[in-house]
Design a protein around this nucleic acid. Structure first.
Lengths: 165, 165
DNA sequence: ATAGTAACTATGATAAACATAGTAACAAGC
DNA sequence: GCTTGTTACTATGTTTATCATAGTTACTAT
């Protein structure tokens, strides 16, 4: 889609974020990055994105400073994509998206959806945090690094089915 | 852009949110809705979107149940767009986007940017909450309704300039 | 009868996305 | 030393969304 209007110079902070995060492909890549995925082919398998939008978005994200390309082997040179601090800080946005969807985007008796699609536990105290941003057990404010995410069986099955296709 | 892949039936919560929120236009409309804007022409002026993507997105958002069209006058019938509860719950995502951008998306000496582009205060205790999700003064968890947002002078000027053009 | 207001719809050019195929640079096996 | 495999992409052409601009509907006010 032609996007002539550039929002990266607006004074509105939501506009500036939207320039990066207002894009399905970027969000799917970020999701995978937060689950520990680092390689091109894995992103392709998990997100279902074609190689060029994937390549294009990874370049964009690198230009914006949210990911870094790191060589993990020479001969032949192969790269992995790692989140920078600026990238890791995007966690709160993804987490808010997850929380919203878990609460509002699943129909009541949806098949295979019991509890939550992704369960987060507080690394420090082990508590299941539900949809909270503050640990219900110890009261800590929760951010990237504090939380451990685990996919539910249906979600794992879905990802495996996609990866093998 | 052709978007053949539909994410609304994935089990991944980020995927489901991305289907709605992974779109620049939707984000800009939501931003305005959270600032109290309700009318078509005002959205157009503030977001810079053309009338058809605006109309298309508002329909999509209505279909998704995040906004409601309400007639504010008869003869001729005119409508306003109001956030539903499901829509209001999206605040956390927008707030996370604002927080990320205020911290990471402005260059150090950027003209006119002193402090924050949008300042939020806790309605209950009056404290400036900065970039927090928990009130630094009284410790309350902050969500939609608890916060009052105020645009900085540069941002107001930018919006007025856009509206008059 | 003309001008104004608010919320759109219609039209055509442009640019982005998708599917599919192909390339580069090697390693490993036969 | 030739084929197969691996990983990370690039190239090509069709499909589809977006943008800019203009026009429409249904009225009120002067």
């Amino acid at each position: 889609m032609p996007r002539r209007t550039d929002l990266s110079d607006t004074y509105c902070p939501v506009g500036r974020s939207a320039e990066l995060v207002g894009d399905r492909a970027v969000l799917l890549i970020l999701r995978d990055l937060f689950f520990g995925v680092r390689r091109f082919e894995a992103f392709q398998a998990n997100t279902g994105l074609g190689p060029q939008i994937l390549a294009d978005r990874l370049k964009r994200m690198e230009r914006e400073g949210v990911v870094e390309r790191k060589a993990y082997q020479q001969r032949p040179v192969r790269h992995e994509y790692w989140l920078t601090d600026k990238g890791k800080a995007l966690f709160d946005i993804l987490y808010a998206m997850r929380n919203w969807a878990e609460r509002w985007a699943y129909s009541p008796g949806e098949t295979g959806y019991d509890g939550h699609a992704v369960r987060y536990t507080h690394r420090k105290c082990g508590a299941d945090v539900g949809l909270a941003t503050v640990c219900p057990e110890c009261g800590d404010i929760l951010g990237y690094g504090d939380l451990k995410g685990e996919m539910s069986p249906v979600l794992i099955a879905e990802r495996e089915a996609r990866a093998s296709a």
